[in-house]
Design a protein around this nucleic acid. Structure first.
Lengths: 362, 362
DNA sequence: TTGTAGTATGAGACCGGTCTCAGTTTGGAG
DNA sequence: CTCCAAACTGAGACCGGTCTCATACTACAA
């Protein structure tokens, strides 16, 4: 009745070795494919392995080699198609290179991010790809770098952190998109993001802790100023996620104000989706009453009436690129940290028009 | 220069034990939280662990306990929002119960599914959730069951496989949706799926290897027959994925035929999306020229003009349910395999209308 | 024939935890 | 004061692989 006799105990190299009448070391050499073995013995071991249906225990293998063949990915929100595609890009590249992916969700919370990182490090992943939730709290990321574990930052660069980074030029893209709105004559512009900030009213860039959003707002403000708009900060709307429906409420409030914006730049496709729905319930027409541009070329933006103009981010490529950089480092490459910036592409569709009534200042 | 002196070697229990001046066994008891230890020693060990920044090696832990604290998930296509949400449901439940998730993509290919399963079993996951790509080739799944590793089938039941299953009543949902179309007077109906089958023309249910799709087509055909439609099989369109654009071509061919369908039931939201786009490029109006119902309440279906009526599948709940069943089994529960069928909900929107011209047989 | 290089194999340490078992202390009961 | 049980601690086996090292054997050149 000892455990050796259990019919469900997984088959080990020792079992195979016994059956093939060779030593454990020799069987391991065949099964692991690493040492010199005579053809005759090799065949015998392989036959025994097949007969017993041997499946190597990757855990044990990882422990002795120190490599797990796994990379850890921490994203803000898998439900967001942006990250969904990114993960797909990462997975595809990883699998092609023989790596597995362990996925974790931070829900954009630093504490959850820390916990996820702890687990992944505990599992001895060979490297990490992280979209940092908060660029003010990066001690845990610094620890990763210090421990020499390869780390790639995704979409959100962090200054003076010596890690490879893959991002898009958010400031430039926001600037260009905003220019299209000002060029059309808009003067009351809003930038809407789901970001939660303290305090909930926008008072300055320093208050923002997601670097990509910060860069975008920076670009937005710069373009507004370039167009002679005063106090464009007043157009920045932090429609935080949080409680169910809170975001929608914030957006409806924005659109129902006495002097509502005539054009909106949406920070991501989820926010844009809410804005679009709000225009429907409020009976606003696009682009007649409101011009709208969104970040990320989400599926739905191409089938609405009118379709929505977007800043198309090369998310899948960002994913593969991040995996590429990471795997290169895992395989020993050790160049100085590089910051890759992939170009965005503006997709003109039908959601930008002239402001309904030109403001008096025009 | 030996490895013991490397400053980047991870800290082990032995290191902590040495520093706390206790035995490895005692340090392990504190760190693992399992044996009786005096408060004084406990504090000393904890202090040493903190000072050295000890991080347990989960791999080693898994090897000796035989539990990895990880569940493996194999889905058909992560890019499909259906699976995206499902994974979210699974992850949420898993994390709440202290499990991690390793994700793998089969791309709806059995061989890839087998490979993924092999890797996951190699990593000694505690249990598996799989959406089987092909219900004719299930030997590898049978092996899992035989090896006593907990397995839950997701969305696609397999007959006489003793594994827990979570699915929706696909036949019933398809039947009801089809009835809505026939009730509106439609007589030329089509069912469009991305499924690839051999041969590419629909000849019978036996040829289909994704059980959920099979059940849906069965429901579709039954509803058609109930409405007195002859040879409804001719309306089944296997618009296989495969090469880029092949699916779109098949759909455009269908819609441009001499006697095109006046109503379509789409097997998933990706196919429905293609159909919707095709109507736009072909200048067809919904529901004037074509009525459309899709499976899965994808985001985009609510913002088109008109919005699309859908069979809303409780995907997130299916995910949490699957994880629940799996974790119960991992924790030792061993009831006979249960097949949970979650109810679908029909969401009436604006994409179903009367056929443009009633067929002569009406 | 002997020396030597090279190949094939086995024995056993090792990775970093868990866990069993034996030995030591301690405390309360008799 | 003695005895026994419970609490604590340490030594070392174990999980299932990898990998180093020593040994046995082969073959070829000198």
């Amino acid at each position: 009745m000892d455990k050796k006799s259990s019919p469900f105990r997984p088959v080990t190299v020792a079992d195979v070795a016994r059956r093939a009448e060779v030593s454990k070391a020799t069987a391991a050499r065949v099964l692991g494919g690493y040492g010199p073995v005579s053809d005759e013995v090799k065949l015998r071991v392989q036959a025994a392995a097949k007969a017993l249906d041997y499946r190597p225990n990757e855990l044990a293998r990882s422990m002795s080699t120190g490599k797990s063949g796994t990379i850890g990915v921490v994203v803000g929100d898998i439900e967001n198609a942006f990250f969904g595609i990114a993960v797909r890009g990462i997975s595809d590249k990883a699998h092609r290179s023989g790596f597995n992916v362990i996925l974790a969700n931070s829900g954009e919370e630093v504490e959850a991010e820390k916990a996820a990182l702890k687990v992944l490090v505990g599992k001895r992943v060979d490297g990490l790809i992280v979209a940092p939730a908060d660029n003010r709290s990066v001690g845990h990321l610094r620890d990763i770098v210090r421990s020499r574990r390869p780390l790639v930052l995704f979409d959100r660069p962090i200054e003076d952190l010596a890690a490879d980074t893959v991002a898009t030029d958010d400031r430039e893209a926001a600037f260009a998109a905003t220019q299209r709105l000002t060029a059309a004559g808009h003067r009351r512009l809003a930038y809407v993001t789901a970001l939660n900030a303290e305090p909930p009213l926008f008072i300055g860039l320093d208050q923002l802790y997601t670097s990509s959003v910060k860069a975008r707002i920076d670009g937005f403000l710069a373009a507004c100023r370039a167009a002679g708009i005063v106090e464009p900060e007043r157009g920045v709307c932090l429609a935080g996620g949080g409680a169910e429906g809170r975001q929608r409420a914030a957006i409806e409030r924005l659109l129902s104000a006495a002097e509502p914006p005539t054009a909106i730049l949406a920070s991501d496709s989820l926010v844009a989706f809410e804005i679009f729905k709000a225009t429907q319930t409020l009976g606003l027409g696009i682009p007649a009453d409101l011009s709208l541009i969104s970040f990320y070329d989400a599926e739905w933006t191409s089938v609405t009436t009118p379709p929505i103009s977007v800043v198309d981010q090369p998310v899948y490529d960002m994913g593969t690129r991040a995996a590429e950089l990471l795997i290169a480092r895992i395989n020993g490459a050790a160049p100085p940290a590089r910051h890759d910036v992939l170009p965005n592409r503006f997709i003109e569709r039908g959601s930008v028009g002239l402001p309904r009534r030109l403001p008096a200042t025009a």
